[in-house]
Simulated scan of single mutants.
Amino acid sequence: MKVLHVITGLAAGGAEQQLRTLLPHMDCASEVAVLTAPGVLADAIRAGGSPVRVVGMDGNRDLRALPRLTALMRAGRYQVVHAHLFRACVYAPLAARLAAVPAVVATEHSAGARHIEGRAVTAPIRSLYRTATQLTHAVVAVSPTVADRLHAWGLPRSRVVTIPNGVDLSAFRHDPRAAGLARARLGIPPEAFVVGGLGRMVAGKNFHLLVEALPHLDGAVLLLVGDGPELPRLRLLAARLGVGRRVVLAGESAHVPELLSAMDVLAAPSQEETFGLAVVEALAAGLPVLYGSCPAIDDLPPGTAPGARRVPPHRLTAELAALLAGPRTRLPPPPGLDRYDVRRQARRLHDLYDRLLTRHHQERLT
C-alpha cells in the first residue's frame, strides 16, 4: 500500500509532530507532501525514511498549488491520500479526486468550538470545510469532542471515524541525563523549579498566564517550547513584569522529550483544545500537569490519569505555587495512556485504509 500524507506545513506543532511520530509505525510505504515551507520537522521525517515533497504553496489562495499537487499524486500512483490540517483538507481531496486516487482521508486535528488553526469558525469556514470533505471517503476525528463538533458542522456521523492521536510513550520516558544537558544548554540552573509550556505560541493557548504567574513563584523559571505570533507579546509582558531573565524561549524543537525531562511541571492553560497532545506527552514523561482543557484526559475513565488536574485560570498561580513548595517527584506514566499508544493508532489507520480500498475494489466490480 502506498500512502501520501498531505499537510499544510511542517513546523513543530501538535499535528505535525503527530505525523512525524506516526510514520515509522505505519505498515505501508508512506510519503509526505507539504504545501508550504518544509519547517523544522521535514529533516526528521526524511531521516525516518519517508520522502518529503514540497508543493511550494504561496498563501491560502494560491490555486497554482492544485495542479502541482494533482500532478504529484498522479506521478506517485498512490492508493491512499491522507490530508492533515485545514488548508490541506481543502486542497488535497480535490487534487486526489482529479488524480483518481482510490481512497481519500482527512484528519481533523484542530476543530475548536470557536477557532480552527487560529481562524474563527464562521459559517463560511464551516461551509468550505464541509464542501471540501465531501470529496473524502472518511474524516478522522482525533477525539469524540472533535467528532461531535464535526457533526454539528453538518458532517454525517457515518463518515466520521474517531481515532485518537498517538504517542510513542517509551520515547518520552524521563531521562535525568537528558534533563541536565537540556538545562545546561538553555542556561537553566540545575536546582531551579521549571514550569513548562509546550505548543504553538498563539493567543488561544493562554501562555501569558504563565508569565503573569512568575512574579509569585520565587526563583522559578518558565520554559516555553514553540513558536508563533504571540512570542513578541510574551517577551514584552515578561520585561514589564521584571521576570524577563526567568523566561526561557526554546523556540520550535524536534526534541520535545528532552525538554519535557528538563521541566518540573507542565502547565497547559488553553481553554479550548481538540485533543491535548502536550498533556499526554508530559504525563508519559512523568510530569504533573495542570490543564485548562484536554479531551484526551476527559475521555479516559475517572482516576486513570492522577497526575493531570484541570485548573481554572484564576487558580493557576496558586496551584503552581503549591507544587513549587512541595517535593519534586517524577510520577509513573498513568496506565490510561496505553489508549494513546501510537502503535494502536497506526493499526487503526491501516485498517481504515484497508476498508476503504476494499470498498473501492468492490464498487469497481459491480
Rank of each mutant, 00 (worst) to 15 (best):
G112K: 07
G49F: 04
V247Y: 01
L23E: 03
R347Y: 00
G118L: 05
V139T: 15
V221R: 00
F172L: 06
H151F: 04
C294D: 06
A282S: 03
L266K: 01
P257C: 07
V90F: 07
A47Y: 01
V225E: 03
A203N: 04
P38R: 03
P38W: 04
V311T: 14
L63D: 03
A106V: 08
R235Q: 14
V40H: 03
D218K: 10
G326M: 01
V52I: 09
V146L: 06
G76Q: 07
R177N: 09
T8L: 05
E117P: 08
L356P: 04
D354L: 10
P334C: 09
V161H: 03
L331Q: 15
T366F: 05
A47S: 13
R246T: 00
L135E: 04
N60Q: 11
A106Q: 12
L283S: 06
V34C: 14
S261C: 12
A71I: 02
E281D: 06
A178I: 05
A220Q: 00
V160Q: 02
Y353E: 09
L277R: 11
G166C: 08
R119W: 08
A171E: 12
H84S: 10
T317Q: 10
H5F: 14
A203K: 14
P176N: 11
L323H: 01
A285M: 02
P144Y: 05
P269H: 02
L283H: 06
A321G: 11
G251H: 09
A284I: 06
T162V: 13
V194I: 01
D351E: 14
F193A: 01
R87T: 12
G166I: 07
T317V: 03
E31S: 14
L66A: 10
T304Y: 08
L231K: 15
L210F: 00
G307N: 10
